[in-house]
């Protein structure tokens, strides 16, 4: 694992704006750390990373990172990212969202982005609650959990983010927690390398609201909960029953939207000179991408 101090100087913006907006002990910092180490490990040029986010606590992540950063509207990060990636296939487009952001208001964009299978990496920071607005119930709040909009306990069935992404057609789906830092970093790394859409669910803690209201405790208690209540997906199903699984659930070889589109263009372009120019432009971009990947 990369030491922290050089990473901060290398990957975070020197001019902005610490301390962060997050509560002490928040998992968002851990997710950001994992992402930055993964980007560094892959040797991706900062100029070619676009970090896109939605609204919520996790949405503030891009402001700190020294990339091309885009803080969008609530739930729409994937749609902004789709336009950006299609216009600029040479960029590594990485999307950070929360559970409410990506699955409630952004649920439609979420399933369709999985289906479209454009090469981007999306991380959903799942803390099972709306943190920024003050602890309201989200689409991943478990049944019977308490939230400020579920004072008698939540009666809505929660989404399983990873399974939803898998059935919607994502090429890569993985899940870990902010307790399992190395594993999370490793899964993000795999996602960054994937051709097609990669979705990573990072289970995180909101001790300020979820932990306090549900009497789980402070940040360390919530991390301990992650340690005790999750298990690797490769473990014997008998032993891991009733536990939340971690690991890589989907890792498909797919052609991806961009390559499909390139094939379509080659069929459609009638002007031979234009076709030649277009191919050269694309090859040039591929070369650049390969160079960055080292």
């Amino acid at each position: 694992m990369e030491r922290t101090a050089p990473l901060i100087h290398d990957m975070l913006r020197p001019n902005k704006k610490f301390p962060s907006v997050w509560c002490p002990g928040c998992g968002n910092g851990i997710v950001l750390g994992c992402l930055l180490r993964a980007i560094k490990a892959q040797g991706i040029d900062h100029n070619k990373v676009a970090l896109v986010s939605g609204i919520g606590c996790s949405g503030r992540m891009p402001v700190y990172a020294d990339f091309n950063t885009l803080h969008t509207t609530h739930g729409r990060a994937l749609a902004f990212a789709t336009g950006l990636k299609l216009a600029r296939p040479d960029l590594h487009v990485i999307v950070i969202m929360g559970d409410g952001d990506s699955l409630a208001i952004g649920g439609n964009h979420f399933i369709h982005t999985c289906r479209r299978n454009l090469s981007m990496t999306a991380i959903v920071v799942n803390n099972k609650i709306y943190g920024m607005t003050g602890g309201q119930c989200s689409p991943t709040t478990p049944v019977d959990s308490v939230a400020t909009t579920a004072t008698y306990g939540n009666i809505d069935q929660p989404f399983d983010i990873s399974h939803l992404a898998a059935v919607a057609g994502a090429a890569f789906v993985g899940r870990s927690t902010v307790f399992h830092v190395r594993e999370l970093e490793n899964i993000i790394s795999q996602g960054l390398n994937k051709k097609g859409f990669a979705l990573i669910e990072a289970i995180s803690n909101c001790h300020t609201y979820f932990g306090r209201m549900n009497r789980i405790g402070q940040a360390p208690d919530m991390l301990k909960w992650m340690k005790d209540n999750t298990a690797p997906v490769l473990m014997d199903p008998e032993k891991r029953k009733d536990k939340v699984t971690r690991g890589v659930f989907v890792d498909k070889e797919t052609i991806g939207f961009l390559q499909h589109y390139e094939q379509l263009v080659e069929k459609a372009i009638k002007n031979k000179e234009l076709l030649k120019q277009w191919k050269q432009k694309r090859e040039h971009k591929d070369d650049e991408a390969e160079e960055q990947a080292g």
């Binding site: 885009l70 749609a79 789709t82 336009g83 950006l84």
Partner: peptide, 9 residues
């Protein structure tokens, strides 16, 4: 959203 993302590219 997509046209804004593309424009930034």
């Amino acid at each position: 959203a997509s046209i804004i993302g593309a424009a930034l590219g």
